[in-house]
Simulated scan of single mutants.
Amino acid sequence: MQDQLSFSDLPTRPYTQPHKVPGPDPDETPVIAGRGRLPSYISDHRKRLRERFMSGGADALPDYELLELVLFRAIPRQDVKPLARRMIDKFGDYNAVLSANPRELSKLHGVGNAVIVELKIIEAAAQRLARSRVMERHAVSSWDALIAYCRTIMAHREVEQFRILFLDRRNVLIADEEQARGTVDHVPVYPREVVKRALELNASAIILVHNHPSGDPTPSESDIVMTRRIDEAATTLGITVHDHIIVGRSGELSFRATGHL
C-alpha cells in the first residue's frame, strides 16, 4: 500500500464554469438616458485611461484602474470604477480578482456572466503566456521565468495543488502536469505515482511544486518528509529531484536553496 501524506496550509477554489443566466444581465446593461451614447464624463474617462495605459503600461495604473480596463469590455454602458474598487476591496489585488472563484465573484452586485468570462479569459491568457516562456526551455537558464509561471498558476489558488515539472537529460522542460488537488490545507501525494509518471515520460529529472493558500511558503514537517520520500524513490530509479518549490502569495521557497533537499 502506498503511503499518503499531505501538503498543508490555507484558501483558492478551482475554477468552475459560471452559471448561465438567460437574457441580458440587468446589472451589466443599465439603461442610459439619451440616444444610447455614454455620458461624456464616462467616455472621456475611458479614453484617458486607455491613453495612460498605452503610454505608460500597466505600471502607470493602480490595480483598480487596470481592472477598469478589463471591465470596459464586459460592461460597455456604465461607469465601472465603483465596481472595480469593490472587487479590489473584497479580493485584495488585481491578481486575486482574476483568479477568484466565479461563485465568489458573482456575489458582488454588478458582476454577471460577462464580467466573469472576461476575467477568466484574461487569467487563461496570462497562464498560457507564462507557460510558453518555460516549456521546451532549459530549466536553469530560464529559472526566473519558471518561478513566474508557477506563481501565475498557483499563488492565488484557494486549495492546495501539487504539480510536477518533468525535464529531459538536457534539463529542458518537456511536461508540466497537475498530479493532485486537495482542500484548503491538504493534498494527497503518492511517491510511487510521481516516479511512475516520470518513467512514462522518459524524464531524467523532476521539479516538484505545490502551493500554500495561506500565503506563507514555509514548509511543514509533512512537506519535508514527503519530499525526502519522493527523492529516495526517484534516486533509486536514476531520476533526479532538482528542487521542490512552495508557492505562496507572499513569495516562494526553494527546498534546494534552504537545505531541505
Rank of each mutant, 00 (worst) to 15 (best):
H242Q: 13
D223K: 05
R103F: 07
L38N: 05
E123F: 14
D27N: 13
I239V: 13
N171V: 00
D27L: 04
V159F: 10
M154V: 03
V194I: 11
A139S: 12
A130V: 10
Y190E: 03
V115W: 09
S250E: 11
C150L: 14
R103N: 07
A203W: 15
P217F: 00
T152A: 07
L5I: 07
R13V: 03
K120R: 14
Q2D: 08
R46P: 14
P102S: 05
V194G: 00
I245S: 00
R37N: 11
R151N: 07
L237T: 11
Q161I: 10
G34Q: 05
I206P: 13
L10G: 09
I116C: 00
F7D: 00
V184L: 14
G251H: 02
D44R: 11
K120T: 01
M226K: 04
L253D: 02
R151W: 05
T183N: 03
Q17M: 10
D3R: 10
A124W: 07
H19D: 15
D27Q: 04
R77T: 13
G34P: 05
P213K: 04
E193T: 00
R170S: 15
H210D: 04
A114T: 12
G182R: 04
V172R: 04
R137F: 00
V241L: 11
A125F: 02
R133G: 04
S214Y: 12
Y64G: 02
D223F: 00
A58S: 14
G182Y: 12
E136F: 15
R46K: 07
T240M: 13
N95G: 15
R157Y: 14
R85E: 02
Y15F: 12
F166K: 08
D216G: 05
L146N: 00
Y149K: 09
L108S: 09
K81T: 03
P219D: 03
R103W: 05
I246G: 05
R151M: 10
A58R: 05
V194A: 01
L167Q: 09
G110V: 12
V140G: 06
H109C: 04
A126G: 12
D25N: 12
L105E: 06
G92K: 01
L165C: 08
R157D: 02
D9P: 04
D25R: 05
S220D: 15
A155Q: 05
P76L: 08
G112D: 03
D93N: 15
M226H: 06
R192D: 13
I121D: 02
D44S: 14
L146Q: 06
F255M: 09
A58T: 12
A155R: 01
M154A: 11
K20D: 10
R73Q: 11
H138V: 04
K107V: 14
D243Y: 15
L208R: 05
R85L: 01
T183C: 05
E123D: 09
S40I: 10
E28Q: 08
R35W: 06
D223M: 03
R169E: 12
T235Y: 06
N113V: 02
H138P: 14
A175D: 14
E178I: 15
Q4A: 08
V134M: 08
A84N: 04
H109N: 03
T240Y: 04
P26Q: 03
V184T: 09
G57H: 02
E118C: 06
P14M: 03
V195K: 12
R13K: 09
E123P: 09
R128M: 07
I32W: 10
G112R: 00
R103M: 02
K90I: 01
N211I: 08
L129S: 09
M54F: 13
Q127I: 10
R163V: 09
S220V: 00
P82V: 06
